[in-house]
Amino acid sequence: MPFLVIRALMILVALFWLEKSAAANGEERLLVVISDNNSIYKKFTSTFQSVLNAHDFGLPVDVVTAWSYRRTPAEYLEKTLLVVSVGAKATEEVMRGNREIPLYATLIPRQAFKGITAQGQSGKPPNTKISAVFLDQPVSRQFNLIKLALPQVRRIGMFTGSSVTVPQNLAEEEAGKAGFSLVTEKLGQNYPLATAIDRIFRKSDILLVLPDPGIIDTKTASTILMSSYRYRRPVAAYSEAYVKAGALLAVYSTPEQIGRYTANQVLAMKKNHWILPEESYSTEYSIEVNHWLARSLGLTITTKHKLLRELKKLEQVD
């Protein structure tokens, strides 16, 4: 058995060398740097590549993990027309050395992208050769969904903390546009969860939860969702997983959707002399609704398909 393992190991090592040397030579190309090689990024790259292939992209596309890229960035960047970095880690990695080649970051939360680019520039004028497709959703989209799904809602609750992904003034402005009043509660080291939950559910009709790694981890997520059930106040969230765990509804983009959207942006860039488009949110997204929960909260919500159609219509008008 140990010999079998050692042999398998040797084969794998050999395979990795082969992969690397294959990437090192060749003509002009597109380089995709992925943060990790788990299923999230695989889903992204397979959709991304199949869309490019379907439109006869014509240039070779090399996919490399951030870890492999880190060793010999210069080698990888040679003859590369555009780097697509997938995820925060890959973006950070490519940002580190590269100043020449246009970088299109994707599948990255807006706040992470802003953080990384701010670090990278350190006061210098913004590098025009960087743009991004954000993974998260614009807060206006979240508000519009709530408006369409639950027209009776007036007050939206939101936690604010050190690393919350949407600035409070922007949220307030967008809430106003959608006709909501925004109720906020601070969360953090000196602001205990119990008090914040109690206050926010008392003062609002629905709680909008946004990703905030400083505060909303899986444990607090469970606490929030259970309190939501107890206070009979629904939670709107940013992922399908949240809805499965007990949130009422969510709007989100899957890695496949981001892959498709990014591929279309890249195809457009190719026609436009590789000039990067503006930073953008994906126009491809999904909606999930927990109808079972809705019924137990005494709410009636139309189907997710109808909501999606209406939301897209609304965004086109905007």
Partner: peptide, 13 residues
């Protein structure tokens, strides 16, 4: 900071 993993990861039931 927040990463794509934070958004895409599962919440254990």
């Amino acid at each position: 900071q927040v990463t794509e993993q934070d958004i895409l990861s599962d919440i254990p039931t």
